[in-house]
């Protein structure tokens, strides 16, 4: 029982990052129908830039945090302006998805150039005794990761349901023609979706690095896992990515704990396939929507 609880908590921790990456996928997908495969790189940017500002330049925590998010947002902005905007008029989705792969390789290269191949870490946000809950030992950073993820989800919920810009983003995802007739500038919304997805990816990276370390090439695997989280929950559905991410994280940690850590990716992905066999549109996805979309 104690062990199970322990595994579940460690699953929730990694699952948080998958959920954040998955949400990032959904936000970009909803406004453009593109799968942004550079999504995982934003997590790496978050972790490494945080190290750079916090440990490298010895700036105060909150300043480093803000600067890191600004850098990630800037990367998202540049990515959209330089690679997606020139192509989006042509409407070739496959081409744009390939371009996102190119961007991810470019980002990885630049990060390796700057940071080398070593893993980086910095001290947890708060120092103190781990909390013992029903026998399971939970480090404070774990609570930070889960808490920050919950805060991100809450902020995004408020943004999409209570602000005009958020509603406009939803409108673009539902019907571009109608959105333009409302006077919504679709190009700006696309740009904003890239910035937001970059920033929440970076938040995940900042929070997880003290636990699981960060190196330049972690992004690709995170992209895959985050994408799994998104399609498992139903691509384009906000809460889908959250549920999908946590499920994937817990499955992984249970496999690693009870079976073998070498099998954790395989078993988790196998169960994901199984879920998709039963519900091809994902847990929250609707099959009617599935049939209508391009990807």
């Amino acid at each position: 029982m104690t062990l199970l609880l322990q595994f579940i908590f460690s699953g929730l921790t990694t699952g948080s990052v998958y959920a954040l990456v998955g949400i990032g996928f959904n936000i970009v997908y909803n406004s453009t129908s593109i799968i942004n495969l550079a999504q995982g790189e934003f997590v790496v940017i978050g972790g490494l830039m945080m190290w750079f500002f916090f440990v490298g330049l010895k700036l105060p925590f909150l300043v480093s945090f803000t600067l890191t998010l600004a850098v990630a947002g800037l990367v998202g902005f540049l990515m959209e302006r330089l690679t997606i905007r020139p192509l989006i008029k042509k409407g070739d989705l496959l081409l744009m998805i390939m371009v996102t792969i190119a961007v991810s390789i470019l980002i990885r290269g630049l990060l390796m150039f700057k940071f080398g191949k070593d893993p980086y870490t910095y001290p947890p946000f708060t120092v103190g005794e781990p909390i013992v809950f029903l026998g399971a030992v939970i480090s404070q950073q774990t609570l930070w990761v889960i808490g920050i993820t919950c805060i991100c989800i809450a902020i995004l919920y408020l943004f999409f349901n209570k602000t005009m810009t958020g509603r406009a983003m939803k409108a673009c995802s539902l019907d571009i023609k109608a959105a333009r007739l409302m006077g919504i500038n679709v190009s700006q919304i696309v740009m904003l979706s890239f910035i937001i997805s970059a920033v929440i990816g970076a938040v995940g990276g900042i929070a997880i690095t003290p636990i699981s370390l960060m190196e330049y090439d972690k992004g690709a695997m995170l992209s895959v896992k985050g994408f799994c989280a998104a399609i498992m929950g139903g691509l384009g559905r906000g809460r889908g990515a959250v549920v999908g991410g946590f499920t994937l994280g817990i499955l992984e940690s249970l496999t690693a704990g009870y079976i073998h850590s070498g099998l954790k990716d395989a078993v988790a992905l196998f169960i994901m396939l199984f879920i998709l066999f039963l519900r091809p549109a994902g847990i929250f996805g609707r099959s009617e929507i599935m049939r209508l979309r391009k990807f």
Partner: peptide, 27 residues
């Protein structure tokens, strides 16, 4: 303002949200 062919309302948003989006241009 145009009311497009086939109405193109935002089906998964509430009626109120649809109306609010109509005011986007000066909101």
């Amino acid at each position: 303002s145009q009311v497009p062919e086939g109405r193109l309302i935002f089906k998964t948003l509430t009626v109120e949200e649809n109306l609010l989006l109509g005011a986007y241009s000066y909101y």
